[in-house]
Design a protein around this nucleic acid. Structure first.
Lengths: 243, 243
DNA sequence: GGACAACCGGGGTGATCATCCCGCATCGTG
DNA sequence: CACGATGCGGGATGATCACCCCGGTTGTCC
C-alpha cells in the first residue's frame, strides 16, 4: 500500500533525522532535517505528524536495532560474553548521544505505543541475556535488568565526559567488570563486601598502563612495562610535553 | 558598591534561576525566572546581559560551593574518606541535573573567564583531594583527576537513570569503591587484573540485599537475612505484587 | 529635605520554529 | 496513455523567546 516514492521519502527523512540528531541533538529544526533529506518541510510533517513522533519513531528504530544486536550476541557467544559484549557495544553506541540516554531515563509514560513497545522489547532482550548469563554463573546473582540499563547510561555518560576517549572506555570496561561473578578460586570467604576492594594490583609492582589504566601482562623477566603499548607511551609523552 | 536593592535583586534572580534550572533544566524562559524572583524581565537582563551569562554565573557559583565543600571534607576527614565522601556528595547533588554534567562534559572553551576560573578551581580542589588520598594509600595509584570528574558525571547519570533511587545510589557506591586501593592483606599476588573480580560474595551464601544490593552483615547464627531492612523488604513485596 | 543618578517594571521587536495548507506534480492502475 | 488519487513543495501562521528601551521610581549623599 502507499506509493513507492512515499516510502522512499519516509526512509530518507528517517536517515537524515538520525544523522542530524546524532550530530546536533534533538533540537535541530525540522527544516534542516527536510533539507538534508532532500524533501520539503511538508513531507516531513506528513509522515510524522509532530516532531515528537519523529523522535519516537527514530528511538524505536534504534532500540529495535539493539534487540537484533542482542540476538546476534546471544546466538554467537557464550552467555557471559554475550551479555558483556552486548553491553559494551551498546555503550559505545550511546557515547555522546544524550538524547537516547535521556529517553531511557525519562518516565516510562511515552504518549505513543510504538516507543513503549520497542522499549519493552529492548528490556526483554536485556533480561534474556541477563538470565542466561546468570544461569551460566557469569554474572553476580543480585543484578537486575534495570541495573543494566542504568549502568549503560552511566557508562555512556562517563565515557562522554572523559577527555581521553581510550581511557574513558577503559573505565567503562572496569565498571562493567564489577558485574561479573567472581571465579570461585579467587574468593576469600567472608570478606566484608560493604567495602569491596577495587581491581587490585599486587604489592608495590606496577601493573597498570600509566596512560589508559589497562592491565599489563605480567612478564616473568626483565624490567616491568609501564605502558600497554607504543600508542599509550606516545600519548603520555605528548601529555608530559603539554603540561 | 552599587545600591543595596540592586544587590538584593541580583541575589533573588540567582536564587530563582538556580531553583528553576534544577526543576526544569536550562530551557526555562527568562520571563519565568523574573516572575519567580519577583522582579521585571528588564532587571534580569540588566544584571546578566545574556541568558548564557546567567547560566555561567550560576554554574560558577555552584562549582565554588563544591570547592568549599571539598575544603571542608579535607579539613574534617582522613584523606581517603575526604575524597570518597566528597565525590559521593557531589554525585548526589548532580543526580537529575543534566545541565551541570553537560557543562562539565562540554569543551573547556567557555567564552567567559569567570566560569573557566571556577572550573579551574574545582579541578584543583579535586586534585588536592586525590593527591592526599593517594599519598595515604587510600586510592588506586593510577587514578587521574579527569577520571574523577568523568566518574562523577557517569555516576550521576547512572543514578538518574535507575528507577529505584536507593538501588541506583548503591550501584554508584560500588562504582566509587572500584577506585579504592586494595587492603594489602587481601591481595592475591599476580592476579590477572584485566578481568577484575566484582564485589565477591563467599561461596553460595546470600550476602546482598535482594532489593537494593547492599551488603548484608554476616550473622553467625540463624537463617541468613535476605533484605537489608524492613523498608527494602516491603519494597520488594510491592514489586512482587505489581508484577 | 532635595537633587540626581542608578534602578525598576513591563510592553515592544525581530528571529526562530513547529505546524498547517493549497496548488501542482507524480504514480500506478485500467 | 489517461485520469483520479496520492504525495509533494515551500510559503503562511501563530506562538515563544531572548533581548531592548523608556517613563517612572527609589536609594544615596549632601
Amino acid at each position: 500500500m502507499g506509493r513507492a516514492d512515499a516510502r522512499q521519502n519516509r526512509e530518507a527523512v528517517l536517515r537524515a533525522a538520525a544523522k542530524l540528531f546524532a550530530e546536533d541533538g534533538p533540537e535541530v529544526s525540522l527544516a534542516r532535517i527536510a533539507q538534508r533529506a532532500g524533501v520539503g518541510a511538508g513531507t516531513v510533517y506528513r509522515h510524522f505528524p509532530s516532531k515528537e513522533i519523529l523522535i519516537e519513531a527514530l528511538l524505536a528504530r534504534h532500540l529495535d536495532g539493539l534487540v537484533d544486536l542482542s540476538d546476534q550476541w546471544a546466538a554467537r557467544a557464550a552467555p557471559g560474553d554475550a551479555l558483556f559484549g552486548f553491553l559494551l557495544e551498546v555503550i559505545e553506541k550511546w557515547v555522546g548521544r544524550r538524547h537516547v540516554c535521556d529517553a531511557l531515563t525519562a518516565d516510562r509514560s511515552w504518549p505513543h505505543a510504538m516507543l513503549a513497545a520497542a522499549a519493552e522489547r529492548f528490556g526483554e532482550a536485556l533480561e534474556r541475556l541477563l538470565r542466561n548469563a546468570e544461569q551460566a554463573g557469569a554474572v553476580r546473582p543480585d543484578v537486575r535488568p534495570e541495573d543494566l540499563t542504568a549502568l549503560a547510561v552511566g557508562a555512556a555518560a562517563l565515557s562522554s565526559a572523559h577527555p581521553n576517549r581510550a581511557r574513558g572506555m577503559r573505565l567503562t570496561r572496569l565498571l562493567l567488570d564489577g558485574l561479573r561473578a567472581p571465579s570461585v578460586t579467587e574468593v576469600a570467604p567472608f570478606r566484608d563486601v560493604s567495602r569491596p576492594v577495587g581491581h587490585e594490583s599486587a604489592g608495590r609492582g606496577r601493573q597498570h598502563c600509566r596512560e589508559c589504566g589497562a592491565a599489563l601482562r605480567v612478564r616473568g623477566t626483565g624490567r616491568p612495562a609501564r605502558y600497554c603499548g607504543p600508542t599509550c607511551r606516545q600519548r603520555a609523552r605528548r601529555r608530559r610535553i603539554a603540561d
